Simulated scan of single mutants.
Amino acid sequence: MAASGKVAFRLPPLPTIREIIKLFNLRAQKQLSQNFLLDLRLTDKIVRQAGKLKDTHVCEVGPGPGGITRSILNADVAQLLLVEKDTRFIPGLKMLSEAAPGKVHVVHGDILTYKLERAFPKHLEMKWEDDPPNVHIIGNLPFNVSTPLIIRWLENVSKRDGPFVYGRTQMTLTFQKEVAERLTATTGSKQRSRLSIMSQYLCTVQNCFTIPGRAFVPKPEVDVSVVHFTPLVQPKIRQPFKLVEKVVKSVFQFRRKYCCRGVEILFPEAERLEKCEQMMMLADVDPTLRPAQLSILHFKNLCDVYRKMCDEDPSLFTYNYREELKQKKTSKRTFRALGKE
């Protein structure tokens, strides 16, 4: 008999994922962007991107029928938390939980509202400067929540709260191939976007590999990529997340125009040109560069200058270009209506 502690955990024989789907009459719902991954070689490959998971605590987001779940359990994790919004999948996940006694906790809930900061034991917390903690997030994300969810988690990284109270928690997540390309796009590339800056100023982001759409049931119209995130010890832009987001969003608002066009809309109309010119000059950014040509250093300079300008005039940060446009349109309609009376 093998010595105690040396035997790796393996799941007992279980129905296949296809059999689970049949058994519980599970159909992927298009309106929820659900696609099942049935090939266990691929689910094993996704889990391998997370690194060594033996004795770690893992949260799997949206496990569905449990394909990736099996691969995570076979990696011999200490604890696995499953957060699943769709009640139809809970019985199948409970079956997996029974097959791995004491290892799995199934939660029926929405990851967008679930409090991950309370999900794992306190002793797992590491200092931010230390190695990442023994906590990992893994998920084959539904397309309709993947972007809002990663933006939410990036904000958590910047504040070191949510799943990042434990330290620099790593994440291995799936995205539509196009979204993954945006997340990892380099300066000047066609896919460079708001997502590129927001993810890369806070994390090391790696596009691991792409899974063809035909591997999923039902087959989505796009391929899917696996992306790995490790929060940086020091963010490349040291300003509040909302300020960085506002500057980056504004610049990419007019992605085909010169970057100064997006910077302009950070300011009310009356002082727009003057303030924009001032900001570009102080940040040492060429106003004729396109948004995709701006490096993270360019954005750091823009954010630092904008922060100083907001400190000098606090009303600047609350200024909203879209609101101003709405008010103008409303005023025009009112003016026309009065003219017809």
Rank of each mutant, 00 (worst) to 15 (best):
V135K: 01
T186D: 14
N134V: 06
P235K: 07
K242P: 04
L141C: 05
L154M: 15
F241L: 05
V205R: 07
W153V: 00
N156V: 00
R238D: 15
P212S: 13
V222A: 14
T172Y: 00
L183C: 09
F143E: 07
T186S: 14
P231Q: 03
G188S: 09
R168T: 09
V233Y: 09
A185G: 13
S158N: 08
P142H: 06
T187C: 13
R192C: 11
L141Y: 04
F216C: 10
F175N: 02
V165F: 11
P235A: 08
V157Q: 01
P220F: 05
Q191D: 15
S193Q: 03
R182N: 08
P240Y: 12
I150Q: 03
N134C: 09
I211A: 09
K236I: 11
Q170P: 02
S189H: 12
C208V: 01
L149S: 00
T169R: 01
T174A: 08
E245R: 04
V179N: 05
V248H: 05
A215F: 10
G188A: 10
D161R: 02
Q191G: 14
E155D: 10
K219I: 14
V222S: 12
G139Y: 04
C208M: 14
N207C: 13
R214N: 14
P220K: 05
F209G: 10
V227K: 02
N207K: 15
R168C: 09
T204Y: 12
L154E: 03
S189R: 13
D223P: 07
G139A: 07
G162F: 05
T174Y: 03
V205I: 03
L202Y: 03
V145Y: 00
L173N: 00
F216T: 04
I151E: 09
N140Y: 01
D223I: 08
E155W: 00
